[in-house]
Design a protein around this nucleic acid. Structure first.
Lengths: 237, 237
DNA sequence: CTCCAAAATTGATCTGGGTCAACCGGCTTT
DNA sequence: AAAGCCGGTTGACCCAGATCAATTTTGGAG
């Protein structure tokens, strides 16, 4: 899905009662700074499937994801796709070198984000090293996840990949909505395949196999972990 | 290789004529700061194969690589290994969250590094946001490389992986020692395989195939690119 | 130099996951 | 409610790369 209408509301919302106040970049700001910060960002919405930014685009905007899920991916010239991550509320997007995004980002379902213009945001950081430290912290956390994902892509079997994905995704949702054995999967099978370096058929077959063995149950819009311990054993961490 | 003797010299060397002065973290420091910085670090040496730090070790030291090459890797419980990167002079190692390394690092051949104790280094950064910005820059650059590598691991064929590796490695060496079609490969075939998510046999066969086709020549301790354009075509960027 | 061990290459064979193709609901459109 | 579509599932078959098994080459050590 290409360009489309981006709804922009007047900035009624207050940072102070923002859903991601405690976990996002802004967690490093005190009450006074937050008031000033409020004027820098504005809330924007993206429809399901809409592209928020593309690889190689010049970065003029940063995003702080508030609601919804995004897929972050890179394409090869011949169309092969690797999803490098899924973004969830609290994730900060747009940091890069050379002023260009190095991956593309699409909304999966409706998305709300807090949008910042690069220049004023950069100025705001300038004399607030604690915010810079927070951004650095987020970058290092992502780097650690990226390395874990390299191990998964390079050295794990299809079964291990799928099991590790289910556990990892459940874990991330747990820290947002609380722990649960019912795991919603808003992304398509193709998305999961492109995230795990597999084909859609292999992902589908692996799900059915896990279900046949009574380890998971495939439900509408997600899966339910019937035997989490078994899944953990499969993921072989 | 497990613990071994770490040679420590008195800190004769001056940062000001350090080989990586211009490219490493310290490139963000002015002459005055550099004098102070000099007292924080000390030069350490590692023998070939020696482990500098291990995954899960508590981080007490940071390293700024001065000479030599290191392999950075993660192990699965059953011994499968994924090399997440090779470190070259100018690379900064040790940044992490939760105070633990999230990968292991071995010397490939003799290595010299500038070693910093975590606490005083952290204090030094404290009131020098430009150094923090430099560290952030390096983290973001690594993140970008990590994402490129995910694409390679998840979506590229063995031939493409090997070709992309040769070009990428040549590129990195070029920015250190100047461009050349003769590419030294200090790491073993097993290291290359574990970096590319392949087996040693596949790497070896791919090299021989490229040589048979007159694209490269396998020389002692490396390869020579006879037809760089062909290699680039294979890497299919 | 000779001997030994580790690294690399090469060959033969096997298999996990890809490819190709058919099919099955559930939604939307008319 | 028929038609069409899209996402997902299932089956049959295939192949890139893994595995298993010898060599061959390289690099020290004595």
């Amino acid at each position: 899905m290409k360009p489309s209408v981006v709804t922009i509301e007047p900035n009624w919302q207050l940072c102070s009662d923002c859903a991601v106040r405690g976990s996002a970049v802004c967690s490093s700001l005190d009450a006074v700074e937050l008031r000033e910060f409020e004027h820098l960002g504005r809330r924007v919405h993206f429809a399901s499937g809409e592209t928020v930014f593309s690889e190689e685009d010049i970065t003029t905007l940063f995003y702080n994801l508030l609601e919804g899920v995004m897929r972050l991916y890179k394409l090869l010239p011949d169309g092969r796709r690797q999803i490098v991550g899924f973004a969830l509320p609290g994730d900060f997007l747009g940091m890069n070198i050379l002023g260009r995004h190095n991956f593309s980002a699409d909304a999966i379902g409706a998305v709300t984000a807090c949008q910042f213009a690069k220049v004023p945001f950069g100025r705001f950081i300038e004399d607030r090293p604690h915010l810079l430290r927070r951004i650095n912290e987020l970058a290092i956390r992502e780097l650690s996840q990226a390395r874990d994902h390299m191990v998964l892509l390079g050295r794990r079997s299809a079964d291990e990949k799928v099991a590790a994905f289910l556990l990892g995704w459940r874990e991330r949702l747990a820290s947002l909505k609380g722990a649960s054995d019912t795991v919603p999967l808003p992304m398509s099978r193709q998305d999961i395949a492109d995230y795990l370096g597999l084909t859609i058929e292999t992902v589908s077959r692996t799900f059915t196999k896990l279900e046949r063995h009574g380890v998971i149950e495939i439900i509408h819009g997600g899966i339910s972990l019937l035997d989490p311990a078994k899944v953990e054993a499969l993921a072989a961490a």
